[in-house]
Lab assay of single mutants.
Amino acid sequence: MALNTPQITPTKKITVRAIGEELPRGDYQRCPQCDMLFSLPEINSHQSAYCPRCQAKIRDGRDWSLTRLAAMAFTMLLLMPFAWGEPLLHIWLLGIRIDANVMQGIWQMTKQGDAITGSMVFFCVIGAPLILVTSIAYLWFGNRLGMNLRPVLLMLERLKEWVMLDIYLVGIGVASIKVQDYAHIQAGVGLFSFVALVILTTVTLSHLNVEELWERFYPQRPATRRDEKLRVCLGCHFTGYPDQRGRCPRCHIPLRLRRRHSLQKCWAALLASIVLLLPANLLPISIIYLNGGRQEDTILSGIMSLASSNIAVAGIVFIASILVPFTKVIVMFTLLLSIHFKCQQGLRTRILLLRMVTWIGRWSMLDLFVISLTMSLINRDQILAFTMGPAAFYFGAAVILTILAVEWLDSRLLWDAHESGNARFDD
Rank of each mutant, 00 (worst) to 15 (best):
M1D: 00
M1R: 00
Q7W: 09
P10E: 11
I19F: 12
L23K: 11
L23I: 09
L23Q: 07
P24A: 10
R25P: 11
G26W: 10
C31A: 00
D35I: 01
S39F: 12
S39V: 15
P41I: 14
N44F: 10
N44C: 09
N44W: 08
H46N: 11
Q47C: 15
Q47R: 08
C54T: 00
A56C: 11
A56I: 12
K57V: 13
I58R: 12
D60N: 09
G61Q: 14
R62Q: 04
T67H: 13
T67S: 06
R68F: 15
L69F: 14
A71Q: 02
M72I: 06
F74L: 12
M76P: 04
L78G: 05
L78W: 10
L79S: 04
M80C: 12
W84G: 10
E86I: 04
L94W: 09
G95H: 06
G95Q: 06
I96H: 02
I98L: 06
A100S: 14
A100I: 05
N101R: 03
N101Q: 02
M103P: 08
Q104F: 06
G105R: 00
T110R: 09
K111T: 06
Q112G: 13
A115Q: 07
A115I: 01
F122I: 08
C124E: 04
V125C: 11
I126H: 03
L130G: 13
L130S: 14
L132T: 05
L132M: 07
V133T: 03
V133F: 03
T134L: 12
T134M: 12
L139T: 04
N143D: 14
R144H: 10
L145Q: 10
G146H: 04
M147P: 02
N148H: 02
L149I: 06
L149A: 07
V152N: 03
L153P: 02
M155E: 07
R158Q: 15
E161H: 12
V163E: 10
V163R: 03
D166F: 15
D166A: 15
I167T: 09
Y168A: 14
Y168V: 06
L169D: 01
L169E: 01
L169V: 11
V170M: 12
G171A: 14
G171Q: 08
I172S: 12
G173N: 01
V174W: 01
S176G: 06
K178G: 00
D181M: 03
H184A: 12
A187R: 13
A187V: 07
A187C: 07
G188E: 06
F192P: 05
F192D: 08
F194R: 00
A196D: 08
V198A: 13
I199Q: 05
I199V: 10
V203Q: 03
T204R: 01
L205D: 13
S206Y: 15
H207A: 15
H207V: 15
V210Q: 15
E211C: 12
E212Q: 14
W214E: 01
R216A: 10
R216D: 07
F217T: 12
P219K: 10
P219D: 08
P219H: 12
R221S: 08
R221L: 08
P222H: 07
T224Y: 07
T224C: 07
T239H: 03
G240C: 05
Q244C: 07
P249S: 06
R250K: 08
H252T: 08
H252V: 02
H252K: 03
I253M: 02
P254L: 05
L255G: 10
S262F: 01
Q264E: 01
K265D: 08
A269C: 03
A269Y: 02
L270G: 07
A272T: 08
A272Q: 01
S273L: 03
I274W: 09
L278K: 02
P279C: 14
L283C: 04
I285D: 01
L290W: 03
L290G: 01
G292H: 04
Q295P: 02
D297N: 02
T298I: 07
T298Y: 06
L300R: 02
S301Y: 07
G302P: 00
I303H: 01
I303W: 09
M304H: 07
M304P: 05
A307H: 15
V317H: 00
F318Y: 10
I319Q: 08
I319V: 09
I319C: 15
V324C: 10
P325R: 00
V329D: 13
V329S: 09
F333R: 00
F333H: 08
L336T: 09
H340T: 10
Q345S: 10
G346A: 15
R348I: 15
R348V: 12
R348N: 12
I351W: 15
I351G: 13
R355H: 14
I360M: 11
G361S: 06
G361D: 04
R362T: 04
M365V: 05
L366Q: 12
F369E: 15
S376V: 14
I378G: 00
Q382A: 12
G389Y: 00
F393K: 13
F393L: 13
Y394M: 02
F395Q: 02
F395D: 01
A397Q: 02
A398Y: 07
V399Q: 09
I403P: 03
V406S: 05
V406P: 02
L409R: 03
D410K: 00
D410T: 00
D410M: 00
L414K: 02
A417L: 06
H418G: 12
S420I: 11
S420F: 12
S420Y: 10
A423V: 09
R424F: 13
F425D: 14
F425R: 13
D427G: 14
